[in-house]
Design a protein around this nucleic acid. Structure first.
Length: 469
RNA sequence: GCUCCCUUCGUCUAGUGGCCUAGGACGCCGGCCUCUCACGCCGGUAACAGGGGUUCGAGUCCCCUAGGGAGCGCCA
C-alpha cells in the first residue's frame, strides 16, 4: 500500500512554527516512502476561517518548499458528503439525535465539575423513547461504545490505551446541520486514503473517539504518529506572545527556508550527532519512529546560527535570489550597482540574516545618507585628509579595478608612503565610502562600489572635512 | 478534578545494561587570527528530577514520588 500522509490546518491564522514542523514531518514521511502528501484545509468553522489565512498557509508551505501532491481540499465544500455519512451512522444506530439544550449541557458540566468529575455528556437522549420536544433542532451524537478499550499503536508514543468508559457521546453534527471536527477528520482521512496521520499530540486524546467512529463505519483506522508540541522559552506552548511564530515572519526577517527546515527537523529528532541536513538528506534519513516523545523548547539562537550557516555555505547565486527579494522590499534599486552574487560573497560571513545583509549593503547601490557621527569624528579628521587625497590619486590612476590591484597598488602604497598602519588608511576610506565603520575588507568594498562612485565619495568626504577637493 | 502524555548540560540532543570519568551542537566565557565588523581556529563552563528496587553492573529495566504538558466545546 502506498503511503499517503496529510497536513490539515484550520485557516484561523498563519502557518506557525509548530504547524510547519508537523507539515514537514508529514511531508518527509511521504517522500521517504515514495508516497503522496495531501493538503487539506479544515474550514468547517465558518466563523473563524478566513480566506486570508488560507492564502497565508499556502504561501508559507510554498516558501518552505513543502509541495503537496493533492489538494488543497476544502472541508467546506464537502458538507454533502459528511451529511451522507451522518445519515449512515444514524441509520445503523451508531448515532442518535440529541435534543438537549445548551443550557442543560452547561448545567450538567458545572455540576460534574463541582463534584470533581470529568465533564461529559450523560447520555440522556441516547436511549430516549419518549417523543422529542417540539421546535428543537437536534444535534447528532455518536453512540460511543460503553465498554472495552481502544488501543492506539502510535508510531511515536508507542501503545496508548483508552477505556471506552472514559469517552462520552460526542456531537458529530451541529443543530444547524454542519459537521464537527471529529467527524470530518474521520471521513476525510478515509475518503482521501490517508495511511499515516501525523499530527500534533494535542490530538492524542481525540484519537480513540475517531477510531471508534471509523469502526462504526467499518473503516480500517490509519496509523497514527503524534508529535510533541513546541514550547516557548517559558515552557508554555509556543504562541504569539513569544515573538515570531509565523513562518512568513521568518521569511520577512531574512531567514532561508532551508535553515528553518533544518532547524525544525532537528527539533525533536536527530540522527546521531549530525546537525546539518539538506532536504535530500532529511528525506533519506528521517524516520518518524525516531521522533522524541517530549515537548521541546524553541531556540531562536540556534535557528539564527543555522541561518548564518546556510547563508555562508549555500550557492551564492541561490542566496542572491533571496537577497534580491529583501533588497526590493527595502526599496533598494540594485540595477546600477554590483551583481548581488558578488555582494553575497563579500557579506555572507558577517550577516546572519538576509534582511541584515540587505540593510548593510545599501551603500553599494545608494549614496550614504550621511556619516555616522562617531565614525566621522574619529576617522574623517584633518589628519586623514592626506590619506584620502593620496588614495584618491592612486585609485584614479589604477588600470585594473580588482580587489588585488586596489590592495597592492593603492591601499598598501599609501600606508607605506605615509608610514601608517593599515587601520589608519582603511578606516577613513571606509567611512568615506559607506558612511560607517563596518563593511567587508576595504579592497573588496572599494572594488564593489566601483571607481566612479568611490572617487566621488572620497571627494565628498574631503568636502565634509572642510579641506576642499 | 478526571483521563492521557512527558522528564539527560540554560536550550536542541547522543545514549537501547558494561565502550559513560555521560558525547555533539547552540549559547556563554577565555585565547589566537585581524584594516572595521565578522568568519575561522583552539580551549573552558554545564546535565542523567528525587527515592526505592532488579542486576556482578543502571542514564539505560521495574515501582513510587515530584514537576511539567495536553484533552475533557454544537473550536479544530
Amino acid at each position: 500500500m502506498t503511503v499517503r500522509t496529510r497536513f490539515a490546518p484550520s485557516p484561523t491564522g498563519y502557518l506557525h512554527i509548530g504547524g510547519a514542523r508537523t507539515a514537514l514531518y508529514s511531508w518527509l514521511h511521504a517522500r521517504r516512502h515514495g508516497g503522496r502528501f495531501v493538503l487539506r484545509i479544515e474550514d468547517t468553522d465558518r466563523e473563524r476561517s478566513t480566506e486570508a489565512s488560507v492564502r497565508a498557509i499556502l504561501e508559507g508551505m510554498e516558501w518552505l518548499g513543502l509541495a503537496w501532491d493533492e489538494g488543497p481540499h476544502f472541508q467546506s465544500r464537502r458538507f454533502e458528503r459528511y451529511r451522507e455519512v451522518v445519515e449512515r451512522l444514524l441509520a445503523s444506530g451508531h448515532a442518535y439525535l440529541c435534543y438537549c439544550s445548551k443550557e442543560r449541557l452547561e448545567r450538567l458540566r458545572a455540576e460534574q465539575l463541582a463534584r470533581k468529575e470529568k465533564p461529559r455528556y450523560d447520555g440522556l437522549c441516547r436511549d430516549r423513547t419518549d417523543p422529542p420536544p417540539e421546535g428543537v433542532q437536534p444535534v447528532v451524537r455518536f453512540r460511543n461504545p460503553r465498554e472495552g478499550e481502544v488501543v492506539v499503536e502510535d508510531l511515536i508514543r508507542g501503545r496508548v490505551v483508552f477505556a471506552n468508559a472514559e469517552l462520552d457521546d460526542l456531537i458529530i453534527q451541529r443543530a444547524d446541520g454542519t459537521p464537527t471536527y471529529n467527524l470530518t477528520v474521520v471521513v476525510d482521512d478515509w475518503d482521501m486514503g490517508i495511511t499515516h496521520v501525523i499530527r500534533g499530540d494535542d490530538h492524542l486524546n481525540n484519537t480513540p473517539r475517531q477510531i471508534n467512529i471509523m469502526r462504526a463505519l467499518g473503516v480500517e483506522p490509519p496509523t497514527y504518529a503524534h508529535v510533541p508540541m513546541i514550547l516557548g522559552p517559558d515552557g508554555k506552548r509556543l504562541s504569539k506572545r513569544h515573538g515570531a511564530v509565523s513562518v512568513l515572519q521568518y521569511r520577512d526577517e531574512g531567514y532561508l527556508p532551508e535553515a528553518l527546515l533544518n532547524y525544525l527537523v532537528r527539533l525533536g529528532w536527530s540522527h546521531g550527532d549530525q546537525e546539518i541536513f539538506s532536504v535530500e538528506e532529511m528525506i533519506r534519513l528521517f524516520d518518524i519512529r525516531e521522533v522524541n516523545k517530549a515537548a521541546s523548547t524553541f531556540n531562536p539562537d540556534k535557528l539564527l546560527w543555522l541561518n548564518h550557516h546556510y547563508i555562508q555555505s549555500s550557492d551564492p547565486a541561490h542566496v542572491a535570489r533571496h537577497l534580491a527579494w529583501h533588497m526590493a522590499r527595502l526599496g533598494i534599486d540594485t540595477a546600477g550597482g554590483p551583481p548581488l552574487e558578488a555582494v553575497v560573497l563579500a557579506q555572507r560571513e558577517r550577516c546572519k540574516t538576509l534582511k541584515e545583509m540587505a540593510e548593510r549593503s545599501r551603500y553599494f547601490y545608494e549614496e550614504p545618507a550621511g556619516y555616522e557621527e562617531k565614525a566621522a569624528a574619529r576617522h574623517l579628521t584633518p589628519e586623514s585628509a592626506p590619506v584620502l587625497e593620496a588614495l584618491r590619486e592612486r585609485l584614479a590612476a589604477l588600470e585594473e579595478w580588482t580587489p588585488e590591484a586596489i590592495h597592492t597598488r593603492a591601499v598598501l602604497p599609501v600606508t607605506e608612503a605615509l608610514g601608517l598602519k593599515l587601520g589608519k588608511v582603511a578606516q577613513p576610506l571606509r567611512v568615506a565610502l559607506t558612511g560607517g565603520t563596518v563593511s567587508p575588507p576595504i579592497d573588496q568594498t572599494v572594488a564593489l562600489i566601483g571607481r566612479e562612485r568611490t572617487l566621488a565619495r572620497i571627494d565628498r568626504a574631503l568636502d565634509h572635512m572642510g579641506t576642499g577637493a
